[in-house]
Simulated scan of single mutants.
Amino acid sequence: MTPAQNVPEDRIQIGQLRSAYGLNGWLWVYSNTEPMSNVFDYLPWFVETKAGWQTVDVKRWKPHGKGLVASLKGVSDRTMADSLVGANIWIAKSQLPQPGVDEYYWSDLKGLVVLGLDEQEQEINFGKIHELFETGANDVMVVHATAESIDGEERMIPWHKDVVQRVDLEAGRIYVNWGVDY
């Protein structure tokens, strides 16, 4: 671990250091990547500690039970590992591969304005995407109302080809086939 010189402005969180594992400085790693072992494809990591931002490299890692454990360069005992527990793992967004056609990173979708059409083909503002989550069938957008939205309702809108009509990242909008009363 070394103090980070240039923490990326466009950083994205890909995981978290959860708890110490054993006595030799290993840590449980929670991963937001799919599959979870892809978290190790994006090095170095940036973690924010009490001492400020640190650049972290992984010496070794392995699957363990249903999770992952890792040995980090410069972390050689449990006390050092304990000092990192709870630290979020960040990378520069530029480290991620470009998404394919009609593929998006969830982080790019958060904050987009969600628009639909009423029976008279007038635009309806449902609010902004607050978060996304997976279900067994498809992903779901959690849309929070804003001052500009049609009402104060929070909506759960499925990410499905029949619902999502168009995504315009540059304009910060997503168009959906969704009714006010759904």
Rank of each mutant, 00 (worst) to 15 (best):
E131G: 09
G22R: 03
L17N: 03
E123Q: 13
P8F: 13
R78C: 02
R60Q: 11
H144A: 13
V58M: 11
L115M: 12
K62Y: 14
V101G: 14
G100C: 12
Y182F: 11
E34R: 06
K93L: 11
R155T: 15
K66P: 06
D10P: 01
T135A: 04
L112Q: 08
F46D: 01
P99F: 15
W45H: 05
V140D: 02
E153R: 15
L115D: 08
S37W: 09
N32C: 15
V140F: 07
G172Q: 07
E131K: 11
P8K: 10
P44E: 05
W106K: 05
T146R: 11
Q98D: 13
I14F: 09
F40I: 00
D118W: 10
W45T: 00
L96T: 09
K128I: 05
Q16F: 14
G136S: 11
V163N: 13
V113H: 15
S94E: 08
D108I: 01
I157D: 11
V180H: 06
V114W: 11
V176Q: 07
D162S: 15
K66A: 12
M141T: 02
Q5T: 08
W28N: 00
E148P: 07
A70S: 13
H130M: 03
E154D: 12
M141C: 06
H64G: 01
W159E: 09
W106T: 02
G127M: 01
K128Q: 06
Q54F: 11
P63L: 06
T33H: 14
D118M: 08
P63E: 08
I14R: 05
L169V: 04
S107G: 13
S76R: 09
N6G: 06
V75C: 07
I89G: 05
E9N: 14
L23P: 01
S19Q: 09
N88R: 06
R78D: 00
S19K: 11
E131Q: 03
M141P: 00
D162P: 10
K93M: 10
I129P: 00
M156R: 12
G172H: 08
D82L: 12
I91Q: 05
V143H: 08
K50M: 10
G65T: 01
W28G: 00
Q16L: 05
K73V: 09
R155D: 06
V56I: 15
D77L: 04
A147Q: 10
W178L: 02
M141G: 09
W61S: 03
L109E: 04
W61C: 02
W106N: 04
K59C: 09
I124Y: 11
E103K: 06
W28E: 01
L169D: 04
L72Q: 04
Q95K: 15
